[in-house]
Simulated assay, not measured.
Amino acid sequence: MSGHSHHHHHDIDWADRLAQLRMADRLDADALTPAARRLLGGLPARPVVVDVGSGAGGMSVLFARELAGGGGGTVVLVDATPELLGEARRAVAAVAGGIVEVVGVEGDLADPQLAARVPRADLVWASGVVHHVGDQQGALRTLAGLLRPGGVLAIGEGGLEMHCLPWDLGIGRPGLEHRLSAARAEWFAGMRAGLSGSVAMPYGWPRALREAGLGDVESFGALIDHPMPGSDLLREYVVHRVGWLAEWVGEWLDPDDRATVAALIDPDGPDFLGHRDDLYLFGAKQIHCGRLR
């Protein structure tokens, strides 16, 4: 749902997408709370948690809430976009309850000096970030290098694509969402190929974590399930999501689908998605983690 990363190689304005990231964080919170609890479970008292590519701070809010309910700890937010970093710091501080220290570091996973700029971590979290780096395996080694011995690296990558639209919308050709997904896959392949220093990684994330020197590697999922008719927040999010997906993958969509999307996101038009009662959100996030021996 949310790619919580900023990269100077792309023309995505992440600060501009703040409202959308915030909505996604709110919609994901119930599903990701147990995941946050599980990742913090085996850590020592008052752990240091580093969130690389923290975006609007959604996952760190959940970490901080868990830590505040326990013995406290430290949450370090790392993001390359100052606007997002400031926003995330405010969001996390609001739940830190005075016993969780919140630190912000303006930085990028592609920076070889990153390890010198953040404290050693008991848990490193990076969601939707590694796939924006040319050398993904190298990026995982960098992340593993932020850990204390016994520390855990957890990445949110992959899962089941979010679905939010009925098959037939009463406008345009049915199956629009599937074509948006296919176009996004094409866009993604092109984005990866165009990254400076792009290196193929022809195997899955668990093996990549093992190649980065981690053991006890495991994967688990978090189901995002908001059934129709859904809330106002959900409807607003779906309108945003469909709009930015179409904008992002425009050149891979045919003109008819582009026209359909324009009608769907027009608040003054008869086909505006925001007026429907059959929107939903269903998908899953996959989390892969391993421990530095």
Rank of each mutant, 00 (worst) to 15 (best):
H240A: 14
W205H: 06
G213R: 02
V239K: 08
L233E: 15
V238I: 11
P229K: 08
M228D: 13
H226A: 06
E211R: 02
A212F: 02
L245T: 04
G221C: 10
R241P: 05
G215H: 08
M228V: 06
V239R: 09
G243Q: 10
L223R: 12
H240M: 14
A212M: 02
R235M: 12
Y237N: 14
D225R: 06
H240W: 15
D225Q: 08
E236M: 14
E236K: 12
D232R: 14
F220E: 10
P206V: 02
E211P: 03
F220V: 04
E211D: 13
M228E: 15
R207P: 00
L245H: 06
L214D: 02
F220A: 07
I224T: 03
I224Q: 07
Y237S: 13
E236D: 15
D225L: 15
P206Y: 01
H226R: 04
S231W: 00
V242N: 09
G221S: 13
V238Q: 11
V239Y: 05
A208G: 05
V242P: 13
G221Y: 06
R207F: 01
H226S: 08
S219W: 02
V217Y: 03
L234P: 13
S231P: 12
L233G: 15
A212T: 00
D232C: 12
W205S: 09
R207I: 00
Y237K: 12
L234Q: 09
E236Y: 07
G230A: 09
D232Y: 07
L214V: 01
E236L: 14
E218F: 05
Y237F: 15
A212W: 00
D225A: 14
D216K: 11
D225Y: 13
D232N: 14
F220N: 10
E211N: 05
G243D: 12
R210W: 01
G213T: 00
E211K: 02
D232Q: 15
E211L: 05
G204V: 03
V239G: 11
V239T: 04
G215M: 08
L234I: 05
G221P: 03
A222I: 04
L234F: 08
S231Q: 10
A208L: 01
D232W: 07
P229H: 08
Y237M: 13
R235E: 09
V238M: 10
R207C: 04
Y237R: 10
